[in-house]
């Protein structure tokens, strides 16, 4: 189907054909990803569950992400406090630093930063692992041994990501707010007790909940993108490397897009 459009104009690619082809392949890809995601979610939500694999993945995805999530959160919280102070200073509103830091971290940055960091650490890792298993025939071997890859490989990763992301976001929330407090108290001369009291007074359950709901969706995106790109990885080191790159970029963009859409939704329903 691709040759006809280029050969007519004597080898010069027809831009309309090019755009059409790109659009078609985009839709086809979205369709394939959608079907794949449906299969993963279907396998994840119906028994039997592979609890041993689930636990293993929760440790790999959740526990081992703690350092990277904690470090990212402390720096984001610190930078946020500094910026709000500088901005607020211009119209005498610097006392709102604790309020805006806790709002920004719980509703937005705690989840987004965790999602982005895991899109790097976890998605690329999953894609590389599944891709390597695919090219060394381990996925075929699973099938011949009567193990369904959706149940044995993909569903545990999906569930582990959806379950551990909210926990990681909770950690990111706490450490992020702490980052803001550190800068405010030690660099900006805020009173520690007042800062903490203002933070606690302004903190609402709804704001935290918003971040946690986002985290579940990010978890799904992160696991599915990793498994999807890995399971269609081409042979060789380049194939696996490409799968890891594509999965990571795709997951990061989707995390940010999903974040915006959910923020819009939550604002509209007043959460």
């Amino acid at each position: 189907m691709s040759d006809a459009s280029t050969s007519k104009s004597g080898g010069i690619p027809n831009p309309l054909a090019w755009i059409g082809r790109a659009a078609l392949s985009l839709f086809a890809e979205v369709g394939r990803l959608g079907i794949y995601a449906g299969q993963v979610i279907g396998a994840a939500l119906t028994p039997p569950w592979n609890l041993a694999q689930l636990w293993k993945q929760m440790i790999a995805i959740g526990f081992y992400s703690l350092p990277v999530v904690g470090l990212s959160a402390v720096f984001i919280g610190a930078a946020l406090a500094l910026n709000i102070y500088t901005g607020g200073n211009r119209f005498g509103a610097e006392q709102f630093v604790p309020n805006i830091v806790v709002l920004g971290i719980t509703r937005e940055l705690g989840a987004t930063i965790t999602g982005l960091m895991l899109a790097g650490r976890v998605t690329a890792g999953i894609a590389a692992e599944i891709g390597a298993m695919k090219v060394t025939e381990q996925i075929d071997a699973l099938k011949t041994l009567s193990a369904n890859p959706f149940r044995y490989l993909y569903a545990p990763r999906f569930l582990a990501a959806c379950l551990t992301l909210p926990m990681l976001v909770l950690v990111a929330d706490i450490i992020g707010v702490m980052g803001g407090w550190l800068v405010s108290v030690f660099a900006l001369d805020f009173d520690s007790t007042t800062y903490i009291r203002n933070t606690m007074d302004f903190l609402t359950m709804d704001d935290v909940l918003v971040g946690l709901i986002k985290a579940v969706v990010f978890g799904a995106v992160i696991a599915i993108m990793g498994c999807y790109q890995g399971s269609k990885s081409k042979a060789g080191a380049t194939g696996v490397g490409r799968a890891a790159t594509l999965s990571m970029v795709g997951a990061a963009v989707l995390v940010l897009a999903a974040n915006y859409m959910m923020s819009t939704l939550f604002v509209n329903i007043g959460l």
Partner: peptide, 19 residues
């Protein structure tokens, strides 16, 4: 399909052992 596979064995070229 599973019933059929239970009666088959396969030795893959690379071994395909689970790392």
């Amino acid at each position: 399909r599973e019933a059929m596979r239970a009666r088959m064995g396969m030795l893959f070229q690379s071994g395909a052992l689970f790392d």
